[in-house]
Amino acid sequence: MTTNEVQDEAAARMNGGQEADRVAAWAVRKLAVLSIPPRPEEEIAPGQSLAEDLGVDSLAFIEALVSFEEEFGVRLDEDRLLLSSYDTVQDLCDHLRATRIR
């Protein structure tokens, strides 16, 4: 591995970390609004169930994930637009990060 390649990889990893933060921040911001009733961002926790604890509406959720695709320039698998594909906030963040940083 050349020095340049190592530097590139380190840079990529760093960008990846920032990207991951951006994705998590996006998810928390959206879920705060999509929760029924809406709640402050600091009340969104990784272990919460999207449907049971936050009461997220399934059609509003699809709309949010389509906007994620636009904002981050990615495309999610069809099934991954559905609320039923995710259990917790953590699941959602993990999947969105993995989609973004491959």
């Binding site: 609004v33 509003a60 709309e63 389509v66 906007s67 695709e69 636009e70 320039g73 990615v74 495309r75 989609t99 491959r102």
Partner: peptide, 20 residues
């Protein structure tokens, strides 16, 4: 309760997101 109309997204064909 959220914007009345979703942000306009051009029905452009989107790039393949990631090169695996």
């Amino acid at each position: 309760a959220g914007s009345d109309v979703p942000a306009r997204t051009c029905p452009k064909s989107r790039r393949q997101a990631v090169d695996d």
